[in-house]
Write a protein that binds this DNA or RNA. Structure first.
Lengths: 124, 124
DNA sequence: CCGGATCCCGGTCGATACTG
DNA sequence: CAGTATCGACCGGGATCCGG
């Protein structure tokens, strides 16, 4: 009968949600999709380094979670468009800040890595 | 000689940084570590579902990236303490907002999943 | 041709056991 | 207590095939 420490992190459910939204490709896709509607190939072109398989998987997950809408046009060649839902646009707010942090602090992280490596080589 | 579209997402470097900071366990560790210093076992206890291996790996990565400080006390039993650096505390700001979003919108995501599943079964 | 499904392979993750 | 070692399971990436 231990008292439950209700810190946010000791909850399995939160981990489960974080596992979906704090994924590298999820962050990239939601940030890229921001605002406007985009085609599959357009997303693939813009998001550097993503494989078509992972883009498909990520978009399916986002659709399942109600963050993205998928619209198929029965034309040839096929045309499939993706856009954020309301929930997706709300998620985009914290994700964009994360992306901004990444851009702003990249150099500091790289510098820290250099210091770490250098420190290691002097200690040994 | 194609013109470079300098949208944030088409930069490999940003993907590389995002890959490190938008990782499930990284988010959990930084959020848990917020403010105060913690021991290895304390982190392991608080972060639900993390394995000792992934905690070690994640902490090593965070140390390498200059986000966390690792302090070893030469006592027996061993005592190793971890705390956020200045850079880590700055990263914590967007990460906590992401965690907050996860908590606030969990139900909406679960509801969306139900709708998705239901829709699938009716279409078929 | 576009969007995506499938197969194979290599790397990563997790559980368990062991050590200073 | 705070890790390392090991091994099987799973996941991501690339190549290839396919349906409209």
């Amino acid at each position: 009968m231990k008292p439950i420490q209700h810190t946010q992190s000791s909850c399995r459910p939160v981990v489960e949600i974080l596992d979906r939204i704090s994924d590298k490709w999820t962050v990239m896709v939601v940030n890229q999709l921001g605002g406007r509607t985009m085609r599959f190939s357009e997303l693939k072109r813009e998001i550097d380094g993503i494989s078509q398989k992972m883009l498909t998987t990520t978009l399916r997950g986002l659709e399942y979670d109600g963050l993205v809408t998928r619209t198929v046009y029965a034309v040839v060649p096929p045309r499939v468009e993706y856009s954020l839902t309301d929930l997706g646009r709300e998620l985009q707010v914290p994700l964009m800040e994360l992306g901004k942090w990444a851009i702003d602090n990249r150099d500091r992280m790289l510098a820290a890595r250099d210091r770490f490596t250098e420190r290691e080589s002097t200690v040994r």
